[in-house]
Design a protein around this nucleic acid. Structure first.
Lengths: 212, 212
DNA sequence: GCGCGATTGGACCTCACAGTCCAGTTCGGC
DNA sequence: GCCGAACTGGACTGTGAGGTCCAATCGCGC
């Protein structure tokens, strides 16, 4: 059982703000360049802080990375929140799809899903990181599932459908699409993958649909 | 226009074997630990060679990485070759799906698709690498497309179906599945994603099917 | 068996990086 | 205003990385 260093047990509001400021800078840099190619010195420059501040708030770079995972998850889910909230009908899914495609088209040079990239880089390197990322995906998946269950409750989605797996398939397709999009520099993979997912959901719909 | 150093223009058979031996070791290590966390020194240890040999055969680490992309692409496609060759009916697709799931179950601790991982790490870092990876995906995709076109020619797949996009959707789903699988340590994502893809193809089938 | 280029061993160089240290300064409660 | 804890600046260290260099050896064509 390793002893965990735990700095900054008592954070004043000012300290907390500083900490989160550093974290934001780190998240941006890591999204752009990856974990390994982001040095803490770069984070310090970008956040206009100094070494001692950094190590005052974080035990080491690994701890920082774990926190970056957390806030990137929050960012992604936060960005999707308005859509995920209302993801309870086929037209809503369609709008969600369009919003994502638009996002990807806007910056397909940039690069993929922040969470997906972290997962790829960290999954078989740190068990802590992997677990955290797995639960990020799980939260994401379940928030899609929730909408599907609503549809099922209202009788729009067949009772025989499996919202859990349906949601997993949608998220999986999206992640694959984002990876291929950032590699091929086109949004097509995201489009075809999401369209396939929506048709897949549609296939489990009943006759009883809401009027548009 | 940068001057490109070009070592080892004349390779004897022995030299070529040495070079490919180093490359194999590098590919294994990079698959296991990623590009950034694989040092040239580690490659030397694993391949039982020395620095001078390495730099005799490769201009620098970046050049090595480009070659690793090439051989990982060959490995993956080579492994799939037997299936991809015969990927021209729904049952064949089903067998392909089962083979992949089996593979993933066998080593889902290991980690994802070699090509996908490289793509994630390199796509927005080196334009050369990105281009190479994009064409790897494209070759993969088109080899799936080929089977679909055969089905279409025989009238099993509807003339209205779009083999190009169908193949892209399948590959995308697979890549997403492999990423989630390595993160969540379960083969479920691969299963649901591939099942969805196959149903998607099935939806474009005609009544005219081969007898099993 | 000689010559010459292909090949090899490994010491060495340089530098970027994560992480340490300590002398300060600022802040908030009293 | 004073005191202790929270916070900050920046010089410093150790290590591991990529890459260079050169002398020595191998092996093939003649």
């Amino acid at each position: 059982m390793p002893v965990i260093k735990q700095p900054n047990l008592h954070l004043t509001p000012r300290g907390a703000a500083m900490r989160s400021h550093i974290l934001d800078a780190a998240a941006d840099l890591i999204y752009a360049h990856g974990v390994d190619r982001t040095s803490v010195d770069e984070v310090l420059v970008k956040s206009k802080t100094s070494k001692s501040q950094f190590y005052h708030y974080f035990t080491d770079k690994d701890a920082l990375v774990l926190d970056v995972i957390k806030i990137q998850t929050q960012r992604v889910l936060g960005l999707q929140q308005p859509h995920l909230e209302a993801l309870n009908s086929l037209p809503a899914l369609q709008r969600w799809r369009d919003a994502i495609v638009k996002l990807v088209k806007g910056r397909h040079r940039a690069g993929g899903c922040p969470v997906g990239s972290l997962a790829n880089e960290l999954a078989n390197r740190s068990e802590d990181a992997r677990t955290l990322l797995a639960s990020s995906f799980e939260i994401w998946r379940s928030s899609i599932e929730r909408g599907l269950r609503e549809m099922q409750k209202r009788g729009e989605l067949a009772a025989s459908a499996n919202p859990h797996d349906l949601a997993l398939a949608i998220l999986t397709a999206l992640q694959g699409g984002l990876l291929l999009a950032k590699t091929m520099h086109t949004s097509r993979p995201v489009e075809v993958a999401l369209d396939m997912s929506l048709e897949h959901v549609a296939r489990h719909m009943t006759a009883r649909q809401p009027r548009r």
